[in-house]
Design a protein around this nucleic acid. Structure first.
Lengths: 198, 198
DNA sequence: GGGCATGCTAGCCTTGCGGATAGATAGCTA
DNA sequence: TAGCTATCTATCCGCAAGGCTAGCATGCCC
């Protein structure tokens, strides 16, 4: 068919996530992307359709991976596991990697205007996914009796969405890898105190 | 002494806050700043020392104003007032203005590297101020008996910091002015449920 | 009113950006 | 092996960015 690329798609996208996280969308030049991903600027244009389209693809890959591998499971997550999941978001030992490759949604939110375009669709989708996951986990915890029946899972899911966004921002703001840990711990404690008699 | 400026310092800084919020630091060009603030690019260089120094000054002015006028008072804020303060952060009626001039720290955190420079100092300062205010209000609420004695004001202050950051991001992410309201309401409810017997 | 410091206007410089192009090259298929 | 096609290399383009300079305008002080 054709000549093979120097760098395969998956490798390129993985590296691109790191580049965009390090420098932001605007701050990452196509020449930097070329250097760090192995992708040539020529292919960036012809195969991916330019920088913005490439960012969208990177963002989609990131979100798919997060949904599939990193978000807590909607059906099989206990309240304690949810609490621990929040605590782990800023584990100082894992921070170097997590911090080096944080939430790309942050960049999407802060660097693009809300104009109803492609980025906005992704943001809306992510908010929905988060809400659904958290609400389902909390509803389950009510069923099992972990938390009281008069607990509002929808409202608390909203609170957890907000908490997670705040945590992403704190991680980005961190002057050192231990910095964000108390914030994650406070979130975990909040969740644990939702238990009946907690 | 000298010739008077077209636009006075305060007016310039106020307008600059809006420009930087609308387009971010990187996205705001010096020519846009010139247009919307009345400041000339010449004065931006000679009197303010260039775009980055000017942003820092704008950021300082913003933070001073927030500390003086918008953050809840450390000494005279009840728990209910604190809850209402969070709820008001995303009041749909006030959103047009608030949304049009949101938290500049967001831009500082997301658009600058953590290199120990001037921006980092501001970020650290803001985190400290927030923590101190919230912790003091909560400590007072323990004194008055609004919340239980075994309540950890320090940890919950950390949680509130995180909540406020999340709210700022949600406001930035909002597709419409009503969007952020449930997030603010959930935060307010969380605070109200801290009351003894809540 | 003359001196002088400051701000304004207007234009120019350099740099880096995203993107486009053209010729060489590699890998598959027939 | 010939041909086709996607990619690579290298270069170029137009544009917008931040910053700088030169000459004019303004206002305070001696």
């Amino acid at each position: 068919m054709s000549r093979a690329r120097k760098a395969d798609h998956k490798t390129v996208i993985d590296a691109a996530q790191a580049v965009f996280w390090d420098h932001g969308y605007q701050g990452a030049s196509t020449r930097q992307i070329e250097e760090r991903t192995g992708l040539t600027r020529f292919t960036l244009q012809t195969s991916y359709g330019g920088k913005e389209a490439f960012f969208l693809e990177t963002l989609d890959a990131y979100m798919s991976r997060v949904e599939a591998e990193h978000l807590p499971d909607a059906d099989n997550t206990s309240l304690e596991e949810l609490a621990q999941w929040f605590a782990d978001r800023a584990d100082p030992a894992a921070m170097p990697q997590i911090g080096a490759q944080g939430c790309l949604l942050l960049n999407a939110i802060t660097e693009f205007d809300r104009n109803g375009g492609e980025v906005d669709v992704r943001i809306a989708h992510y908010f929905e996914v988060l809400h659904h996951r958290f609400a389902q986990i909390l509803a389950k915890a009510i069923e099992t009796g972990e938390i009281a029946a008069d607990f509002d899972p929808d409202e608390k899911a909203t609170l957890l969405q907000n908490t997670l966004l705040g945590l992403s921002l704190t991680i980005k703001a961190r002057p050192n890898d231990a910095f964000a840990q108390p914030f994650a711990a406070a979130a975990a404690t909040m969740i644990r105190q939702w238990r009946v008699g907690g």
